[in-house]
Simulated scan of single mutants.
Amino acid sequence: MARHELLKIEERETISRELSRHKSARYIGQMLGRHHSTISREIDRNGGATAISCGRGAATPRGEPGTSERTKTRGVAAAS
């Protein structure tokens, strides 16, 4: 399977700009010469169309402590 070129920062900025104009992944992909699924995966990876177009996408690196959106809770232990 061939390795594909990563998205450049300019392409990511274009994705963000076009999403704020309510353009589709297919439209953006056609503009950039990329497959629409590449654009869609980039959008999903960075929090969805709303997060990216509002400037909230990829605010913190993945896996960093304290970046979890929800806290993990444990069930109450059964009394012995």
Rank of each mutant, 00 (worst) to 15 (best):
M1V: 05
A2G: 06
A2Q: 04
A2L: 06
A2E: 02
R3P: 05
H4Q: 15
H4E: 12
E5H: 13
L6Y: 09
L7C: 09
L7T: 06
K8N: 06
K8L: 15
E10C: 08
E11A: 13
E11I: 01
E11P: 01
R12C: 14
R12D: 08
R12I: 13
R12E: 12
E13S: 14
E13H: 13
E13T: 10
T14H: 04
I15A: 14
S16G: 10
R17W: 10
R17I: 06
R17L: 09
R17M: 04
E18M: 05
E18Q: 10
L19K: 05
S20V: 10
S20H: 10
H22Y: 13
K23I: 02
S24I: 02
S24R: 08
A25L: 01
A25D: 00
Y27F: 12
I28G: 01
I28Y: 00
G29M: 05
Q30I: 11
Q30W: 05
Q30L: 13
M31D: 05
L32E: 00
L32T: 00
G33A: 01
H35N: 14
H35E: 13
H35P: 02
H35T: 04
H36P: 08
H36E: 09
S37R: 14
S37Y: 12
S37C: 09
S37I: 13
I39S: 00
S40P: 00
R41P: 00
E42K: 03
E42H: 08
D44T: 08
R45K: 13
G47M: 04
T50R: 14
T50L: 15
A51K: 02
A51N: 03
S53A: 12
S53N: 02
S53F: 01
S53T: 07
C54Y: 11
G55W: 01
R56E: 06
G57V: 07
G57Q: 12
G57E: 09
A58N: 15
A59G: 14
A59Q: 10
A59K: 12
T60D: 05
T60Y: 08
P61M: 06
P61R: 05
R62F: 10
R62T: 07
G63M: 03
G63L: 02
G63T: 04
E64Y: 07
G66L: 03
T67C: 13
T67G: 05
T67V: 14
S68R: 13
S68L: 11
S68F: 04
E69L: 11
E69F: 08
R70T: 13
R70L: 09
R70D: 09
T71H: 08
T71L: 09
T71N: 07
K72T: 15
K72C: 08
V76T: 13
V76M: 08
A77H: 08
A78H: 14
A78D: 13
A78Q: 04
A78L: 15
A78E: 12
A78G: 07
A78K: 15
A78I: 15
A79K: 14
S80P: 15
S80W: 15
S80F: 03
